[in-house]
Amino acid sequence: MTTMTLLQAVNSGLKDIMQDDDRVVVFGEDVGINGGVFRATEGLTKQYGEERCFDTPLAESGIIGVAIGMALYGMRPVPEIQFADFIFPAFDQIVSEAAKMRYRSGGEFTCPMVIRTPYGGGIRGGHYHSQSPEAYFCHTPGLKVVVPSTPYDAKGLLISSIRDEDPVLFLEPKRIYRSTKQDVPEGVYEVPLGKARIARAGKDVTIVTFGAMVSICEKAAEDAAAKGMDVEIVDLRTLLPLDEEAILTSVAKTGRLVVVQEAPRFCSFGGEISAIVAEKAIEYLQAPILRVAGFDTPFPYSLEHVYMPDAKRVLAAVERAVNF
């Protein structure tokens, strides 16, 4: 065990899996000698050489397109997109190619690869270094979408993602890259995909959330506890495929649901959670499903702190649900 930040856990996961599996190659912008702009790939080139961790020209569609070719050939590419906001030039390669390759070839060709990318706000990054684009990708059959919220999970989920036979978008909540530490095992271990985690047990309200919002919700849950409300937090960890059972079990217990996400509200992942609960657990609900989300505006710079859901906003929703 070593105490690590989420960022160090990602780095450790990459190092260990590269040792374990020689098919794994890491590439992207500034990931080599510079170790990535966040340092997630620090030391990989040194340890494994330029063949297995290298810098690419500045073209996200090229990064993903080339990763697909490598995956087709039997490698396990782990390309990095420097910021999730810059993934859109590669959108076509991800949604039209990687996600559909298995299906369109009748299972003959597959694209197991992990696209790592830091996402989310909280680093004073303005429009283009802050967004949470999960909804676009969760709308894409053939893709898996994973979001860790703790160092332990980050490493375990990353390794499971790399060992998975399908393309995975691995969204790293950059706001909490360095904010908390946790004991993380050395060597490879897996945290299974498609399984949520109960981050906090409670009986009055269920909060379903993921990524950097988990710690915000934990803070709100403490504030709620002080006011006599017992909050259960479901940290999804994998958005696609979704652990519906964990959500439905919790909602059946609490009868109330608050969904928390950073992304804009309209047509978002939180909407899907709400729909599933409305379809399958309406008989348990004692209050309307509430969503706390980013505003339906572009992500701002100066007013970032206003835009991002914080514990106050989450608490307000919890109170509304409980007092309905």
Partner: peptide
Amino acid sequence: GTQIPHAVGVALGAKTR
């Protein structure tokens, strides 16, 4: 056009291996 970078990826995979 989508297949063109795939060709590069296949080639790099082969080269790496």
